[in-house]
Computed example of a mutant assay.
Amino acid sequence: MKIALISFTLNGQILGKEIREKLRIDHYEVQLFTKCRYQKSKMAIYVEESIEMWTGKMFQQTEGIVFVGACGIAVRSIAPFLKDKKNDPAVIVVDDTGKFCISLLSGHIGGANELTNILARRISAIPVITTATDLNQKFAVDVFAKKNNLEMSDSCLAKEISAVLLAGKKVNIFSESNLPENLPEGLVFVKENTSFINLYIGIYRNRGNFNDATLFLTPKVITLGIGCKKETKSETIEQFVEQVCKENYIDKKAIRQVVSIDLKIREPGILEYCNKFNLSFRCFTNEELNRVKGEFSSSLFVEAITGVDNVCERSAVLGSNQGKLILKKKAHYGVTLAMAVEEWSVDFE
Rank of each mutant, 00 (worst) to 15 (best):
V164M: 13
F189A: 15
I255G: 01
V258S: 05
K276N: 15
P89C: 03
V91E: 15
T232V: 05
I19K: 02
N211Y: 09
N248I: 00
R20S: 13
P80R: 02
V188Y: 11
V66G: 05
V341D: 01
C101W: 10
S260I: 06
H27R: 12
E313H: 10
E21V: 11
A79K: 02
I237Y: 09
E343Y: 04
D154I: 02
P268Y: 06
F284M: 00
D96M: 06
F81T: 02
V292E: 10
G69H: 09
I3Y: 07
F139E: 09
K252C: 00
L5I: 04
C283W: 10
L217G: 09
I102F: 13
A158P: 06
Q31V: 09
N117M: 06
G269T: 10
S124P: 03
V47S: 13
S124H: 09
I118N: 04
M339L: 11
Y28V: 09
A304D: 08
A74K: 03
Q13F: 01
L179W: 11
Y333P: 06
E313D: 13
S162I: 06
N178T: 11
F240C: 06
N148W: 02
K276T: 15
G56W: 15
R207M: 10
V346H: 05
K191H: 15
I201T: 13
E343C: 00
K86W: 14
I25G: 07
D262G: 03
V258M: 01
N209Y: 14
T306L: 07
G227C: 04
C283M: 04
D251K: 01
R20D: 04
F284I: 00
Q137W: 01
D88S: 07
I222N: 04
K35G: 08
E114H: 08
E185Y: 08
R256F: 15
C274Q: 03
N275F: 01
F59V: 14
C274W: 09
N148R: 02
E287I: 00
T116V: 14
A167N: 15
C156A: 13
K220M: 11
L115K: 08
N193Y: 11
L300N: 11
N87E: 15
E349L: 01
K146Q: 12
Y38G: 12
A79M: 08
K86F: 12
G225Y: 11
A140I: 08
D84I: 03
K85S: 01
K83A: 10
S299M: 06
W344Y: 15
A158E: 10
K146M: 07
Q243S: 00
K159T: 10
V341W: 01
C274M: 04
L183H: 12
P89Y: 12
G227F: 03
G323E: 08
L327A: 02
G110S: 14
E21I: 09
Q137K: 09
E151Q: 08
S41I: 08
E342S: 14
D309V: 14
Y249F: 11
I173V: 14
S298A: 03
P89W: 13
T97I: 09
G334F: 04
D134L: 00
Y333L: 13
